[in-house]
């Protein structure tokens, strides 16, 4: 059980932004922090890890105090028994895959642990390679394995899937869920991808400008408004053009561009860069299976 009540004044390009958090994370839970970049997700994760020091508050894990501003307690990252997977994986380039895992082994040596992780993450054939020669998905698996060598009770993942192709993404998610089932750690994962969160987390906190604005299961958070049966997507306005009597708005929804026709009075309230919801009703969507390679 982790209870984390912290605040910190963050500084970014947009000026100071206060971060205020009150999180409770159960043992073995899979929590996702969701939000746009700059919302304070990575800072939250770094403060849980001890890589960044909050201004005020406490972090207690199973009764052990990790941070207490009033008492002046700030436990070093190495003493928190956590695993951390960095966005750039931070594998040591001078060591082979196996050496990376061996370096992570602390004083408590469980001889079977590395072999077990090599098995779970299917790293057998990669053991002697240097990280520089591996693909993104392979590096990610090594980083996950390395973070789990010291048998952490808490695993922290910073945008673990951001740099991966969709197909590799699902495989890495499977590895991660498999490891979670077998090893039973608590998981906190940052993502700005709803799909990742659906697969990985059983609870999600939506963060905006340093605070949690919504919280619930991925279903509750992401599907609440879709329950009326409408199709809807969130996108960003790229362009507004007048064509005869109507306006054509180009909207980017993830990596797709969509053109939507609106009336002049609707267009008046829009500007380039606005976040918009594109919804449609009274259509019967047609679902057809794509052959691999036909995209």
């Amino acid at each position: 059980m982790i209870s984390c009540r912290i605040s910190k004044l963050l500084r970014d390009a947009g000026g100071p932004m206060p971060l205020e958090l009150d999180l409770k994370i159960g043992k073995g839970e899979r929590l996702a922090l969701y939000g746009r970049s700059g919302a304070g997700k990575t800072s939250t994760l770094r403060m849980l890890a001890g890589l960044m020091k909050p201004d005020a508050g406490q972090i207690a894990v199973n009764g052990q105090c990790w941070f207490d501003a009033a008492e002046g307690v700030h436990l070093n990252p190495g003493k928190r028994n956590i695993g951390f997977v960095f966005q750039d994986y931070a594998l040591f380039p001078n060591m082979s895959v196996l050496e990376n895992l061996q370096f992570a082994r602390g004083k408590r040596r469980n001889p079977g642990r590395i072999a077990e992780l090599v098995e779970i993450m299917e790293l057998g054939e990669l053991q002697d390679s240097r990280p520089g020669r591996l693909s993104g998905g392979q590096q990610q698996r090594v980083a996950l394995a390395r973070a789990l060598v010291s048998e952490p009770a808490l695993l922290l993942l910073d945008e673990p899937m951001a740099a991966l192709d969709p197909e590799i993404r699902h495989r890495v998610q499977d590895y991660l869920l498999n490891a979670h089932r077998q090893l039973g750690f608590t998981l906190v994962v940052i993502s700005h991808d709803a799909g990742d969160i659906f697969n990985l987390a059983d609870r999600v906190c939506v963060m905006e400008r340093g605070i949690v604005t919504r919280e619930g299961t991925p279903d509750e958070v992401f599907l609440s408004r879709a329950s009326s049966g409408k199709f809807q997507f969130i996108g960003e306005v790229l362009r507004l053009e007048k064509e005869d009597l109507v306006w054509v708005v180009t909207v980017q929804i993830q990596s797709q561009l969509v053109k939507v026709v609106v009336l002049e009075e609707e267009a008046a309230g829009l500007a380039v860069g606005d976040r918009v919801r594109v919804a449609s009703k009274a259509f019967n969507p047609i679902l057809s299976r794509l052959n691999p390679g036909s995209i």
Binding site: L51, P77, G83
Partner: peptide, 14 residues
């Protein structure tokens, strides 16, 4: 060198 290398080592208790 990326900061994450030092941070990764520090998380690993080095």
């Amino acid at each position: 060198l990326p900061d994450s290398l030092r941070e990764a080592a520090s998380v690993l208790g080095k």
